[in-house]
Design a protein around this nucleic acid. Structure first.
Length: 747
DNA sequence: GACCTGCTGCGGGGTG
């Protein structure tokens, strides 16, 4: 580290010397050999300039310290009397991890660290009101609770707020929760002393496809002033392999005259999909059993079934069962057991969902597996970043793709190995360094409704003009016009959520009061009703009403096999007992969007036979078969393919928002249209479809097309909005007119 | 073809 020299102006002093003395001592005690580049840059930028910061670095790259070393240095001489720093984290588990790190960092400087989320006791929360100060680690939902329930305490609590740190910023980009957070920070700002400087914003992230968009979220009025701090030299060796697993069909003559299989193993052996999954499970056992690994699967049912299959392979080979599970429907105790086991016992592999995508500590992981095509490049990058966190270790990623080519199928979506094509597209784009750009939601009227209720709850009553000013002018709902805002107020009033008092001010109505006083109010995202799954030893998790199994059914859950004993609808409990049969559990589906560039790359992968060294022989030969089949059928282009006289397939090879636009256009013309990953199935002959679309002189207004999108309701408060209002939101955020779609009309 | 996240305030009763 550079020598100290207090005589130099701050710009010229070394980053280390700019730090508070107690922090320098702490770094020395921790035996840090030096500061990392992002840390020195962040320290200089924060302590010598006025800008907001966006700090981007790979997982475990020292981002937390990059943000907090300068901020703590700034407040070290005067940490009390008011909360000086708010840290917002997306997960309680992350807040708990960071709490310990920050407490240790603050050891010598006397800055108190508080955490506040749903698992923190009321007495601890009270002590913060009595003596506010230092750093407050909090979730967005708990900030909402502060605003709504502790309004009068806010001016004192945050009188001298110096900075707001947002961790895992990518978790807040382009979704309702991010919009909520922007609104919360804006509403909190209304309680800070007038004339005081706006707190500095410091955002931390690993995966951001579009730094400009992130800057606009942090500082909508002056995005150019946000300073980006990243270390471009930082890169790790990547070892990537894609393994193709086709499902092989039984020869049909073998089955003729055969009795239906009663036996579990025989019926599974007859199911080519089961045989395929068992081959993947066998590969997992072979490659995972000596080190700690994470294997991501796309669906919770898949997680459970792969863990069961892999442990079965272990048993049959006389090996210990080393496969654990982790996903959002498991009881917290089971998830914590898995996290603890991963940290304390060597050689375990957890099969998991995106619950383990973010930085919750599970110790060091050698390799990451991905079963099925990843949802996005951003998600794959994030997942891959869980391996090779130690210096000198590579990142190892092993993808398993369904490589089945079905030449007997007439629909492209059925015949082509879409899972393999999409895996290849996502891997190609990741290796090229591309990540999906995330745009903030523009017109989310469900979250706006939530914030209208919250604003009234916060202020007691409010005029429509002030609510509009706070949320849509100074707050983040800037794309929402006064007319649409008025429409939302009328819709809420029609549902007894708000009403107008005699003085014309808005107050909460009967249903609004009920919504607001419910525990579930604080989050802006919706959660479906669930059954608790209970065994003799206690609860193991939950399942949605819609897919809960009836009594007598079997399921695999929490890595074990169960039979449903009883379903209690009133207590919302399903009783389970141990069983020996296995069945994959199903969960309700969700809507996600895929960027156009991934689908374009899927088409490109059929056009150019590129040499991809990361493909194994099975996936490479499946890709060649797919290229041959697509060439023979004329599917390597955008345009219409014949299925029958009265049905056709529009190969679009575009993103889900673009395709949703095209499907809505077809439906607006009375055509029954169903979206698949690579195109739209139409209940109309190809020639008729093309001539009808050629007759479209001008693209219809997007809000008219929004009326043909199904399903319309997707968010928490959508049920209270009118179809017209929902269409405004769908038009703004869920539909994109693909450029040049008229050129996609060849047959 | 689907993943994840979050979460009262208050009153009553008991204890020191």
């Amino acid at each position: 580290m550079e020598p100290a020299s207090d005589a130099n102006p701050p710009q010229l002093r070394s980053a280390f010397d700019l730090l508070a003395e107690g922090l320098r001592l702490k770094l020395w005690q921790m035996r840090w050999p030096s500061l990392r580049p992002i840390q020195t840059h962040a320290i200089r930028a924060y302590l010598t300039g006025p800008e907001d910061l966006l700090i981007m670095a790979e997982t475990a790259g020292g981002k937390t310290e990059a943000a907090f070393l300068p901020i703590l240095s700034r407040i070290a001489s005067d940490p009390s009397g008011s909360v000086r720093v708010i840290y917002v984290g997306p997960l309680k588990a992350l807040i708990n991890d960071q709490f310990e790190r920050l407490e240790s960092l603050c050891e010598n400087i006397g800055v108190p660290v508080h955490r506040w989320h749903g698992d923190v006791s009321a007495s601890r929360k009270k002590s913060l009101f009595d003596d506010p100060g230092g750093v407050l680690l909090i979730t967005p939902e708990s900030i909402e609770s502060l605003l709504v329930n502790r309004t009068r305490l806010l001016p004192r609590m945050f009188a001298r707020l110096e900075a707001v740190v947002i961790d895992e910023l990518h978790a807040f980009l382009g979704n309702e929760r991010g919009l909520h957070l922007s609104s919360l920070l804006s509403r909190l700002g209304e309680h800070l002393p007038t004339g005081s400087a706006r707190p500095r914003l410091v955002a931390l992230s690993a995966t951001i496809g579009d730094a400009e968009a992130a800057k606009a979220v942090l500082s909508p009025d002056a995005p150019h002033t946000v300073r980006v701090i990243s270390d471009p030299t930082e890169s790790k060796e990547v070892k990537l392999k894609v393994h193709g697993y086709p499902s092989e069909r039984e020869k049909s003559e073998d089955k003729v005259g055969e009795e239906p299989a009663e036996d579990l193993a025989r019926s599974e052996d007859d199911d080519p999909e089961f045989v395929r999954m068992r081959r993947i499970a066998t590969d997992l056992v072979e490659h995972c059993r000596t080190h700690a690994n994470l294997v991501f699967a796309n669906a919770k049912g898949d997680i459970e079934i792969y863990a069961d299959l892999a442990n079965e392979v272990c048993r049959s080979e006389g090996l210990p069962e080393v496969f654990l599970v982790h996903h959002g429907s498991l009881a917290r105790e089971i998830r914590e057991d898995t996290e603890t086991a991963m940290k304390s016992r060597p050689g375990l592999t957890t099969i998991c969902s995106s619950t383990l995508e973010m930085g919750v500590d599970i110790g060091s992981v050698r390799a990451v597996g991905q079963i099925g095509a990843p949802w996005s490049v951003a998600s794959l990058k994030q997942r891959m970043g869980r391996s090779g966190r130690r210096d000198g270790e590579p990142r190892i990623l092993r993808c398993y793709a369904d490589s089945t080519v079905r030449s007997d199928e007439s629909k492209p979506s059925m015949a082509l190995p879409l899972d393999l094509l999409e895996t290849v597209a996502v891997c190609d784009l990741m290796l090229e360094g591309w990540t999906e750009p995330t745009r903030p939601l523009r017109v989310d009227l469900s979250t706006l409704s939530h914030q209208v209720i919250a604003t009234i709850a916060e202020l007691g009553s409010v005029t429509a003009a002030v609510a509009h000013e706070r949320l849509c002018v100074r707050g983040p709902f800037r794309e929402i016009s006064p007319a649409v805002f008025g429409g939302v107020l009328r819709a809420l009033a029609a549902n007894d959520i708000i009403e107008q008092g005699p003085d014309g001010r808005l107050i909460l109505g009967l249903r609004g009061e009920r919504l607001r006083s419910h525990r579930g109010f604080y989050a802006v995202f919706a959660t479906p009703d669930q059954f608790q799954l209970v065994t003799a030893r206690g609860p193991i998790g939950e399942m949605p009403f819609a897919t809960a199994p009836p009594a007598g059914d079997h399921l695999v859950f929490a890595g074990r096999r169960w039979e449903v004993v009883e379903v209690d609808d009133t207590k919302r409990v399903i009783l389970l007992r141990a069983a020996s049969r296995r069945r994959k559990p199903t969960f309700t589906s969700a809507l996600g969007d895929t960027h156009a560039r991934i689908r374009e790359r899927m088409l490109a992968s059929l056009l150019e036979p590129t040499d991809r060294r990361y493909l194994d022989s099975a996936s490479a030969s499946a890709l060649i078969s797919a290229i041959e089949l697509a060439a023979e059928r004329g599917w390597r282009r955008r345009g219409f393919a014949r299925i029958s006289d009265s049905a056709c397939f529009w190969l679009t090879w575009t993103g889900s928002k673009e395709q949703r636009w095209l499907a809505a256009l077809l439906r607006s013309m009375g055509v029954i249209a169903e979206e698949t990953r690579i195109g739209i199935e139409c209940a109309l002959g190809a020639e008729d479809a093309v001539s009808a679309l050629r007759g479209v002189a001008a693209s219809p207004p997007i809000e008219l097309l929004a009326g043909h999108v199904v399903p319309k309701q997707a968010r928490k408060y959508d049920e209270y909005l009118t179809d017209e209002l929902l269409d405004v939101g769908i038009a703004a955020d869920r539909l994109i007119e693909p450029a040049g779609w008229r050129e996609w009309l060849q047959t």
